[in-house]
């Protein structure tokens, strides 16, 4: 499958369970090796452009009982720029504090992460990605299981990212809000059904092609014809 993501857009990746949405993100990030094909970020291989890409994993992918604070998690976003051995200092911590404030979480900086609500945990993950100061943000279901306050905060954040010329690709489940929150959409069900501006691509016909008919059997491995993702 081929997927081109234009710069400076908010793109939703939509598709049924097992369609390969998460697999697609993980392949772009080099966490899974593509069966064939390549990933390019601004025209160059991902390995060279790693710093330009920030990742917001699914909230459920980590153990929130880990002994640490919200601020500390956000500070982890600065580790990539620190290099080996060096520890984060006061400048890293103040950047992390600013990112927490950006998602409305500054009051929770010293909270143990298990004492945060699901929405607050999601915002901590977003702040960690913000600290990376990337050009491309890949988010895996940022809206999943969050309260209205967090949903609002994330939407505001996405728009301010777009205003700064950043690119966001987010796995999204709620078809109702696709048109409201995003300007581009990719419909995925093992293969790419359609991709482009929400207005032209997010049609009943395409949704039927994505969700209706047969259920995809395999776990969404990108395969065969040379998957390419140009961001």
């Amino acid at each position: 499958m081929d997927l081109d993501v234009p710069q400076g857009v908010l793109m939703a990746i939509v598709g049924p369970n097992g369609a390969g949405k998460t697999t697609l993100l993980r392949t772009v990030l080099g966490l899974l090796r593509p069966a064939a094909g390549e990933v390019r970020i601004f025209g160059r291989p991902y390995a060279e452009q790693r710093r330009l890409v920030a990742y917001v994993p699914q909230r459920g992918s980590v153990d929130w009982d880990f002994p640490t604070t919200a601020l500390d998690i956000v500070t982890m976003g600065t580790y990539g720029g620190l290099g080996w051995v060096r520890r984060p200092g006061s400048s890293e911590r103040s950047r992390a504090t600013a990112a927490l404030a950006q998602v409305g979480m500054q009051a929770y900086a010293d909270r143990q992460i298990s004492q945060l609500s699901g929405g607050q945990q999601q915002r901590v993950f977003l702040a960690r990605a913000l600290v990376q100061d990337a050009q491309v943000y890949l988010m895996d279901e940022p809206f999943q299981g969050v309260d209205a306050t967090t949903e609002r905060a994330i939407v505001d954040l996405l728009r301010s990212l777009r205003a700064d010329g950043k690119t966001v690709v987010a796995v999204h489940h709620d078809l109702q809000t696709v048109a409201e929150y995003f300007d581009q959409v990719t419909l995925l069900n093992v293969r790419r059904i359609a991709s482009g501006p929400v207005g032209t691509v997010f049609t009943d016909e395409n949704l039927r092609l994505t969700y209706g008919g047969r259920v995809a059997g395999i776990g969404g491995r990108t395969n065969g014809t040379g998957p390419e993702a140009h961001l």
Partner: peptide, 19 residues
């Protein structure tokens, strides 16, 4: 390797995306 081991223990996938 304190910060490396800390991140590895909390979120290895994120650690990998940092290189």
């Amino acid at each position: 390797l304190w910060k490396e081991f800390k991140l590895l223990s909390f979120d290895p996938d994120f650690a990998a995306t940092l290189g």
